[in-house]
Amino acid sequence: MALNLQEKQAVVAEVSAQVAQAQTIVLAEYRGIEVGDITKLRANARQSGVYLRVLKNTLARRAVQGTPFEGLAEQMVGPLLYGISADAVAAAKVVHEFARTNDKLVIKAGAYNGKVMDVAGVNALATVPSKEVLLAQLLGLLQSPVSGLARVIAAVAEQKTATA
């Protein structure tokens, strides 16, 4: 069913609001995927805070017009699913994880921080650990010299009390 002008404007406004807050957009072709699988993908996206939508490409082009994601307009061809997230890796991770288990979902392109990425770029972004994991790794890195020094001092003190 075709949308009238007001409905199209509402869709463009809704998507534009999501794009304004986004750091990442991922485009994937969904041709041949069953409805149940798409429902699972949408549920995963909702849990991860990803805005996932099937859009007419002309409406999507209007929504990204004048934004850092404008370079994606050339890639907007065919039946596409749009994953938009404010988290830098969430959209790429959700789409990438689903594409690994369902070969009918084909990642076409993406954009992060205003730079258009190819399929390899989206997959690389999807494999980056989450912010929490990176912070934990950094904390472990910062703590390791201090804890090593504390163990050495404790061992020296124990050795001195044992010989005394």
Score class of each variant (00 low, 15 high):
Val156Asn: 10
Ala99Val: 05
Glu34His: 14
Lys160Asp: 03
Ala164Ser: 13
Gly110Cys: 01
Pro129Lys: 09
Gly66Gln: 09
Leu81Ser: 08
Glu74Ser: 14
Gly66Val: 07
Ala2Ile: 11
Ile38Asp: 11
Ala124Leu: 03
Ala111Trp: 01
Ala17Cys: 05
Val15Asn: 06
Tyr51Trp: 12
Ala126Phe: 00
Leu3Pro: 04
Leu72Ser: 07
Asn123Met: 10
Ser144Phe: 05
Val35Ser: 13
Ser48Asp: 13
Lys56Glu: 13
Leu105His: 08
Glu74Tyr: 05
Glu70Pro: 05
Gly148Tyr: 10
Glu7Asp: 10
Ala60Leu: 05
Leu125Met: 08
Gly140Lys: 04
Gln47Phe: 02
Arg100Glu: 14
Ala155Gln: 12
Thr163Asp: 15
Asn113Cys: 01
Ala136Tyr: 06
Leu149Val: 08
Pro79His: 11
Arg61Phe: 02
Pro129Asn: 07
Ile38Gly: 07
Asn102Ser: 06
Gly36His: 01
Gln21Thr: 12
Gly36Asp: 15
Leu139Asn: 09
Met117Trp: 07
Arg46Leu: 12
Gly66Asn: 05
Thr67Ala: 07
Val146Asn: 05
Tyr30Ser: 08
Leu125Ala: 11
Ile107Leu: 01
Leu52Thr: 02
Glu158Gly: 15
Gly121Ala: 02
Gly66Arg: 07
Ala43Leu: 13
Leu27Phe: 07
Val146Gln: 09
Leu52Asp: 04
Ser48Arg: 15
Asp118Cys: 03
Glu74His: 03
Asn113Lys: 15
Thr163Ile: 12
Ala154Glu: 15
His96Pro: 01
Leu27Glu: 09
Lys56Asn: 10
Gln9Glu: 15
Gln6Cys: 01
Leu125Tyr: 02
Arg61Ile: 12
Val133Asn: 09
Ile84Gln: 05
Gly66Asp: 09
Leu27Asp: 03
Gln143Glu: 12
Ala20His: 11
Thr67Leu: 07
Leu3Arg: 14
Gly66Ala: 06
Ser130Met: 02
Glu7Met: 10
Asp118Val: 01
Glu132Ile: 02
Leu80Met: 15
Val133Met: 03
Ala20Leu: 05
Gly49Tyr: 04
Val11Ile: 11
Met76Trp: 12
Leu27Gly: 04
Thr163Tyr: 11
Ser48His: 11
Asn4Gly: 07
Ala157Asn: 14
Gly78Pro: 12
Ala157Leu: 06
Ala136Thr: 09
Ala157Arg: 14
Asn102Ala: 02
Val35Phe: 06
Glu29Asp: 15
Thr67Phe: 08
Val95Ser: 01
Leu55Met: 06
